[in-house]
């Protein structure tokens, strides 16, 4: 009888325990392929460089989203795996305006207060085969005129009006991505090692996708 009641307690405890641990694994089960959208999700300004470090530091309180005056901060939901409830910015929907409120609001070291020109959210990358001025299909210059950091971040090519060239000062806020009128988005935010000009070819794309996933 004693053994039976002990087993009962044990089973019940195991049941309650597994119930409590359910959401630990729920994020895993419900997660679709994150890599399909990895290119569109950039870290917040002042975020820790490594996404794994960021997941370790962020507690998921959502303060960065609640102070953002343009509501550009989105959150990984059940598609984030262990990045669930941590913030990201989708520059295609709404880009960062570099106001720095999220860095001040963050209670943890996930976001640190950084001067505007030292922020590293990535860099803009231009696909010269799809950009109107680069294929001589028209004049545009939207990305250059919207850029909050001016000619140190993106500028026209020397002697060629309206052909944008990303400079070293780009911090990757993504306003150029939001404003770009071309539907195939020739400009995108990538991490710095991928360069400022898109490299073409299936092999290159595949390799980049593989590297970027977390």
């Amino acid at each position: 009888m004693k053994r039976r009641s002990f087993m009962k307690t044990l089973t019940m405890g195991a049941g309650v325990l597994s119930f409590g641990l359910l959401p630990f694994f729920m994020g895993r089960i419900l997660r679709p392929n994150v890599k399909a959208h990895a290119e569109n999700r950039i870290p917040l300004p002042g975020a820790l460089k490594n996404p794994e470090d960021f997941a370790r530091a962020c507690i998921g309180c959502g303060l960065c989203g609640e102070v953002c005056p343009v509501r550009s901060v989105q959150f990984y939901k059940n598609d984030g795996g262990f990045l669930a409830d941590t913030p990201y910015i989708d520059p295609e929907q709404k880009s960062c305006i570099l106001c720095g409120l999220c860095m001040e609001a963050c209670p943890t070291n996930a976001l640190t207060v950084t001067p505007v020109r030292e922020i590293d959210m990535g860099t803009a990358q231009i696909d010269r085969a799809a950009c109107y001025p680069w294929v001589d299909a028209g004049v545009c210059g939207a990305c250059v005129s919207i850029c909050p950091l001016g000619s140190s971040a993106i500028d026209f090519e020397f002697g060629n009006f309206y052909r944008p060239v990303v400079q070293d000062g780009c911090v990757g806020c993504g306003q150029c991505v939001e404003v770009c009128p071309e539907p195939s988005l020739p400009i995108n935010i990538v991490s710095r090692e991928h360069g400022k000009v898109a490299q073409h070819g299936i092999g290159v794309r595949k390799m980049e996708r593989g590297q970027r996933g977390f």
């Binding site: 641990l21 959401p23 630990f24 729920m26 794994e52 997941a55 370790r56 962020c58 998921g60 990045l83």
Partner: peptide, 14 residues
């Protein structure tokens, strides 16, 4: 322990 192992603040989701 799971927070240490998986590298995320697990309590946020429970």
């Amino acid at each position: 322990l799971l927070s240490v192992y998986f590298g995320a603040v697990m309590f946020g989701s429970v």
